[in-house]
């Protein structure tokens, strides 16, 4: 239960004479006890951003506050103590290969100076939490990817942190395993009230567990808001691209784009009325359904459709108005190629 405040954070890397700005005046407030998603394409700066939260990357300018403590004002020793209060898990798990499961989980406790007996008891309890109590003596090389990430989660929780940072924690896992890890994170958040920061490039991860999301592009936050809000009515191209998939992957928008394509989003409550059918009947004009999908956004079923509307502009606007009146969100899909 800790609040994270990021103010005017800028990070520049000097490399061979030229400067790379990884983060450019980032401002974020991550509420205590929330699951906060930071999403962006690779190279957007999200990894640097998450590493600034525990000061593995020191900002060039700006500050990071954790519960109103400015990390810049801490001595190296105080900073290390603070870090013990911030757990972190990684895409590559980063377990010690030469240590078995229980010794991996007790490592942060040994670093914190906890007695061996106490550390073991704690580790066993955590292994039960992540469902690996029978793997205590196994070495990481014997575990599957999902099991390794579970060990890493147990290790990250060993020091009872208030914050858990997840850096692409499910990106190396298959969809089912990824889902089970996300469920575990959600459960941990509910049960322990830990603030969880999730870095990812997959919208599905965000819609699965996050409350709020920030979209990072070229080192800047281009959009921020509740997941529901951003999924329903994305304002920036970056957000739209993350929701509908990459440009280079097969996208009906690119193939059928006639400039008349709209994206509509409906939630569970509006799904009772046959809006599309009614629209067709009312306007007596065909509507082409280019894509239809449902997604789980924060436990709510959200439907998404791409519709090809008629050429006639007046008719098109009338249709969009009609759909909007039915409580559905409508956005024109621009050709963003």
């Amino acid at each position: 239960m800790s609040e994270i405040k990021i103010r005017h954070l800028t990070k520049r890397f000097e490399a061979e004479g030229h400067t790379l700005t990884a983060l450019d005046d980032v401002n974020l407030t991550i509420g205590s006890g929330s699951i906060y998603g930071i999403i962006g394409m690779s190279g957007a700066g999200k990894s640097t951003l998450v590493r600034s939260i525990n000061y593995l990357e020191k900002p060039t300018e700006g500050s990071v506050f954790i519960d109103d403590t400015d990390l810049a004002e801490l001595s190296p020793k105080e900073l290390r103590k603070k870090r013990a209060n911030i757990g972190m898990i990684f895409q590559g798990f980063n377990l010690l290969e030469q240590k078995n499961v229980i010794d991996n989980v007790t490592l942060p406790l040994k670093i914190a100076g906890t007695s061996k007996k106490e550390a073991r008891e704690k580790a066993r309890a955590l292994l039960r939490t992540v469902g690996l109590e029978d793997k205590e003596r196994a070495y990481p090389s014997r575990l599957s990817g999902g099991q390794k990430q579970r060990v890493a989660i147990a290790r990250a929780l060993a020091t009872d942190p208030q914050i858990l940072l997840c850096d692409e924690a499910t990106s190396a896992l298959d969809p089912q395993t990824s889902k089970s890890i996300l469920d575990l994170l959600k459960e941990i958040n509910t049960r322990l009230g830990i603030t969880i920061v999730v870095i990812t490039h997959q919208m599905s991860v965000v819609t699965e567990i996050c409350d709020r999301v920030a979209i990072v592009e070229n080192g800047r936050i281009v959009e921020e808001g509740s997941v529901d809000e951003i999924f329903t009515s994305p304002k920036t191209d970056a957000a739209r691209e993350l929701i509908s998939g990459k440009k280079d992957s097969f996208s009906p928008v690119d193939r059928f784009d006639t400039g008349n394509v709209v994206r509509i989003v409906f939630s569970e409550n509006s799904a009772f009325e046959p809006v599309i059918a009614n629209t067709i009947l009312k306007f007596n004009t065909p509507i082409n359904i280019l894509k239809a999908d449902t997604r789980n956004v924060n436990g709510q079923a959200k439907g998404e459709m791409l519709l090809g509307l008629p050429e006639d502009e007046d008719l098109r606007i009338a249709i969009m108005e009609y759909i909007k009146e039915r409580g559905l969100s409508v956005t024109e899909v621009k050709d963003h190629a």
Binding site: N54, L56, R80, A84, G87, F90, L96, L165
Partner: peptide
């Protein structure tokens, strides 16, 4: 030694001495 493991130890709050001997 994998840089990721060292980073994980830093994130745990390990000092350099602890990183040398424990990682």
């Amino acid at each position: 030694v994998d840089a990721g493991v060292i980073e994980a130890a830093k994130a745990m709050g390990a000092s350099n001495i602890q990183i040398i001997f424990r990682v």
